[in-house]
Amino acid sequence: MNKDQLSALFGRFLREEASPHEKKMVEAYMLLSESEEAEFSDREKQETKERIWSVLNPYSGERRSNNVWYANRSWWLRTAAVWVMLVGITAAGFLFRYDIMDRLFPIAWNQDITGPYEIKRVVLPDGTVVNLAPNSTISYPARYRGHARKARLSGIAFFSVVSNEKQPFTVASGNLDIRVLGTSFEVRNVPLLHDVGVTVATGKVQVRCGDRMQAVLTANQEVRYNDTVGQFSVMEKVDAAAETAWTRNVLVFRETGLEEVLKALEDRYGMKISIHPNAIKKGATFSGAFKSHESGKEILDVVCFSSGLKYTITRDNIAVITK
């Protein structure tokens, strides 16, 4: 749109010839600009009032006709007015247009959380795949808009970021900001350990802490940041493939109590499992990792077989565990 078109738009609005969309644009502009700050000092107010009134006052001889007011205006005043108006709209509108839109139409953030044994595959709105380790939380907008793709992580996750140079992908985790254009990497941020680590599998990743510290990592490099010490340490030649092997699993148990294992299966696969009293020996545990192609029933088979248990499926689809 240029200024002539803008002028034409206002003209159509006044002649009631504007399209519904154009009408709404003007109405929205008139509404939005109400929130502009307009503070005038008492002196300014007094002067302004007097200037306006001097022309209006029915008793003063100075009154001129409408046409004269407009003709009297020096061209540079008008120019300045346009300039000021445009700069005003620019400042509020152009530079911060996505912020304005975020304020007007905020995008909801989604959250995915993993249980203590569970590994989840989360697909972000841009197609970026996140493998979320147990006890981790990732938050991200329901859709991406503007210049940035953002996500927040607490815990451990492996990111395979879809490449988009115009829209860098940023993960905020602990004190670190991890910024990438398209690559894959792992972030480990376990709050209790005061230690955040980033391991890069492919591509290039920029890791920042505040404004001062930053590191640029390439494949098989790892950076660790210790919260308490406040220091970066970069490690070379990490076996990223081995470090991130966990991402192919969906459930991982390490000497986990059997009841907990069964509970995790219920949560993950929506199964209903009922345990016959005394079926499970006190202190019985299970260790093992399951991959994503295995079904809940297959995993239950393995857990029961290795623990010397049996199960039957009732008509209501409940798996009853017995000795």
């Binding site: 749109m1 240029n2 200024k3 002539d4 803008l6 002028s7 034409a8 206002f10 003209g11 502009y29 061209w75 008008r78 120019t79 007015a81 346009v82 300039w83 108006m85 445009l86 700069v87 709209i89 620019t90 509108g93 152009f94 247009r97």
Partner: peptide, 19 residues
């Protein structure tokens, strides 16, 4: 104002796309 004949420099061309 927007339809005025005054030459308003590049500001118009640059800032108007903003509206």
């Amino acid at each position: 104002i927007a339809g005025g004949s005054e030459e308003i420099s590049s500001v118009t061309e640059y800032t108007l796309p903003v509206f």
